[in-house]
Write a protein that binds this DNA or RNA. Structure first.
Lengths: 122, 122
DNA sequence: GAAACAAAGTTTCCGATAGATACTAGGGAG
DNA sequence: CTCCCTAGTATCTATCGGAAACTTTGTTTC
């Protein structure tokens, strides 16, 4: 294997990236932004359960990692919108696959959980 | 949209699943198990930085969700191995895509981070 | 027969993180 | 003048992750 990076090695920088991406809110944000630029409060409304603080932090990290671009427009009041960068767009298929696997396989997962729990109880 | 589940809704059970999957250790474990059954301490050695406690917890959750199967074999001392279930195997392509995106795009991410940090400093 | 080792965990403790809530700043509407 | 909009920041607490010690069952070593 001549890959320069290895996710199984904890000293490898890919771990830092995986840490960022392997996060519920990051995935939901990337998935939501796939449809086009969205403003801060719109994201907050669309992604139910996401607090302002965590939204702010998560967007900042995604921006720093070059996946999301932040644009301030001088409207009144000022509006800010967030969009995927080209790099971010290379991830969206994978992210969408993930989010939608959960939707497709939910029933199987619930069945497995129920079976597991009743096996423990019995 | 006639999809029964919606990840953007916080009352939707898919959120619970996404929570499980959108986790660094779960992804690394699923990726590692793709190659075949592996024993507990082997996983601990292979996935650098993963503590016993978190390995144990993560495996338990993945087992409960029906993604991983735990098999105890009556060797001396007893050995336990973990393998993907058929349901778990439906995820591996996506998981691998994720883990390996990090490896492929690491350089771009580092460049973005550096640019971001120097822009803030300057 | 006591000491040490091995597998697969569990328990304990502590510092970091997430979530809820409240607050800030710069305007605009009533 | 007061409330409401934008896009956040500040604070507080509960939970979570990581490190290391301990447990259990049994084996090998001295």
């Amino acid at each position: 294997m001549d890959r320069p990076y290895d996710v199984f090695d904890d000293r490898c920088p890919t771990r830092l990236v995986l840490d960022r991406l392997a996060d519920k809110w990051s995935l939901l944000l990337l998935d939501r932004l796939d449809a086009g630029p969205v403003r801060f409060n719109q994201l907050r409304r669309d992604i139910r359960g996401l607090s302002q603080k965590v939204l702010s932090q998560t967007l900042k990290r995604l921006e720093r990692d070059g996946l999301v671009e932040r644009t301030v427009r001088p409207t009144v009041p000022v509006s800010v919108d967030y969009a995927l960068t080209p790099l971010g767009r290379t991830l969206t298929d994978t992210v969408a696959a993930f989010a939608h696997w959960a939707e497709r396989n939910m029933d199987a997962v619930i069945a497995a959980q129920t079976a597991y729990d009743t096996a423990l109880a019995g």
